[in-house]
Design a protein around this nucleic acid. Sequence first.
RNA 1: GCGCCCGUAGCUCAGCUGGAUAGAGCGCCGGACUUCGAAUCCGUAGGCCGCAGGUUCGAAUCCUGCCGGGCGUACCA
Length: 555
Amino acid sequence: MKKTIRQLILDIANKAFEDNKFNANTFAEFAIEEPKADAHGDLSTNFAMVNAKTQKMAPRKIAEILIRYIGNDHPVIEKTEIAGPGFINFFILPAAWYPVLNDIYEKDTQYGFSDMGKGQKIQVEFVSANPTGPLHVGHGRGAIVGDSTASLLSACGYDVHREYYINDAGKQIQMLGLSVFLRFQKLNGQTVDFPEDCYQGDYIHDIAKELKEEKGDWIYSVSKDEAVAFCSKFAADRMIIKIRNVLNTLGIEFDNWYSEQALVDSGKVESVINKFKDQQIIYEKDDALWFKTEDFGDEKDRVVVRNNGQATYFASDIAYHQDKLDRGFDRIIDVWGADHHGYIPRIRASITASGRNEKQFTVILTQLVNLLRKGVPVSMGKRSGQFITLQEVIDEVGKDAVRFIFLTRHYESPLDFDLAVAKQKTNDNPVYYVQYVHARISSIIKKARNENQITDISFDEKSVAMIREPEEIQLIKHLARYPETIAASAEYMEPHRLAFYLMDLAADFHAYYNKHRVLTEDSDLTAGRLYLILAVQKVIRNGLTLLGVSAPDVM
RNA sequence: GCGCCCGUAGCUCAGCUGGAUAGAGCGCCGGACUUCGAAUCCGUAGGCCGCAGGUUCGAAUCCUGCCGGGCGUACCA
C-alpha cells in the first residue's frame, strides 16, 4: 500500500510539473508513514514539506496541488486532507485492503519474504564460545540474536551461512586438558595438587570419568605431555558436543564448525603473517611481532607473535577473517558479547590492511545479561565454576520463552533475565500471548470444521466483502505491514522489531476476538471472517518461525 | 584518563533512523466468562524522555559539554 501511494505521488508530481504547476521536476526524498493517530488517516506523507525548497513554494500550496490531482474518485483513496504544517493524509477505502489477504494465501509460508539481498553471500558467525566450559545465558543471547538475524536475512533473499568458530588451539585448551588430566588422577585415588588457574567446574570431573570409561588407564602408558595433549583434544571434543546439543535444543544449527587448530595446521596463519611482514604491516620489536593496527584506526599496535614464539589469538583471528572473505562471502557478520568490543578495531584493521572494504565486516555486540531470580541477582561466580548454565535455564523456563525474551529487547541494551518471570505463563511473558493467538485460531477452525461443516477456507468475493468491522480492517492493515517489518528487521539486523510486531498483531487479534464472533448464523459472514483469521494465523506462524519459536495448535 | 554501550511511567522495555497529542506489558484501582480457549478483553490513574546548550518549520531521535550506571583499555582469551 505504501508503494502504491508513493508511486501515485510521484506520478502526479511529474504530471503537475508538465502542466507547469510545479517549478522543478526533481523531488526531495519523502516519507510515507502510518500516523499514530487514527484521525490522521491510514497513511501520510511529508512530501509537501520536504519539497518546499525544491519547488520554492509553501508546503500547503504544494499539498493543495497534489490533492487536486488525486480528485475524489480514486479507486483506492477514500479521501485526502492537508494537516498541520503540510502533511497530506490519505484515507484508504476499506475494500482496498482485501488484496492483502489474497497475497498472504498465495505466498503462504513465504509471505513477507523478499529478494532484497539479491542472493548476496553473507556469513553470520555467532556463539563461538571457547570449548572450555558450558554455555551460560550470555552466550544464549548471542546465539539467539545471531540465529534469528540469520533467518531474517535468509528470508530477505541473502544466501546465509551460519558458522561457529572453535578456539581449539592455544593455552586455554592446554589448561583444559591439564584440568581433566589432574581430575583423572584424582579419580584413580592419587592425591594431586589442583592449581587455581585450572578449570574448577564439575563438568571437568564428568569428562575425566568419560575418559576413564572409554580408554581405561591408557593415558598412563604415554608420557605426561602426550597424556595432557590427548586430554585436551578429548575434552574439547566432548565440550563441543555438549555445546552443540544445547544449541540444538534452542533450535540452532550451524552450517559449519570451523576449527582454529585446523586453520593453524593448514598453514594459513603463518602465510598471512608472512604476507603482512612482506608488506611491512607486521614488524618486529622487542623480539615480538607487531601488527600496525594503529595505522588503521586502532589505539595502538598489537602483538601477533609473542617473544616466546607463541602466536596470540589475534594471529589466528586475522587469518580466520581473511579466510572468510577468501571463501567469497560478500559480507561477514560477527556476533560478540559486549565485553569484546575493544577487539573490533584490530579485526577491522586487519581487514582494511588487506585491501578489503571494511563495510563487508559488521559486528553485532550483544550486551550482557543479568540473571535474576525474583529480582535478586543469581551468582555467576566464574572462578568457582558454580554458575547456572544455559542448559539449566532452558530446562527451567523452556526454549520458546528463552528465545522470545532475548528477542524482545534491542540487543544493545542490557537485559535483566528473571527466571521467576520467565517461567510464568502470563502476560509478563509475551511469548504465550503471541502463541495463544495461534492456538486460539486453530481451535476456532477446528470447531468450524466439526460443528459448522466448513471444510474449505478460501477466497470468495461475497464473503470477503462481509469483512467491514473497524477491528477487521485494522487487522488487515496490520498484516499488510508484515513484509516491511521483515525487511527492516533484516536490514538493521534487529530481530526485536519482529517480536514487537507480533505482540502488537496479537493484541489486535485478541481485541477483535473479544468483540466479534467468528462463527455466526450468517454463512457468508462466517466464511469471510474465517478467511481473515486464517490469514492472521499464517502471519503469526511465519513470524514465530523466523524467531525460532514454535506455533502450537493447542497449549 | 581514553574508547564503546545504556539512561523514556513505580518496574521491565518499545519508539518505525527528524514529524502531528511520547507508547506497551507488568504492578495499582474498577469492570467483562450459561456464547468460537479468561494464558483473554475493556476502563482509570501514572512522564521537566538524566541535565544544559546547539542545529531547524519541527528533537526522545542529530551535534557539543556535563552527571550517573555497565563494559573495555595485556606479549589473556
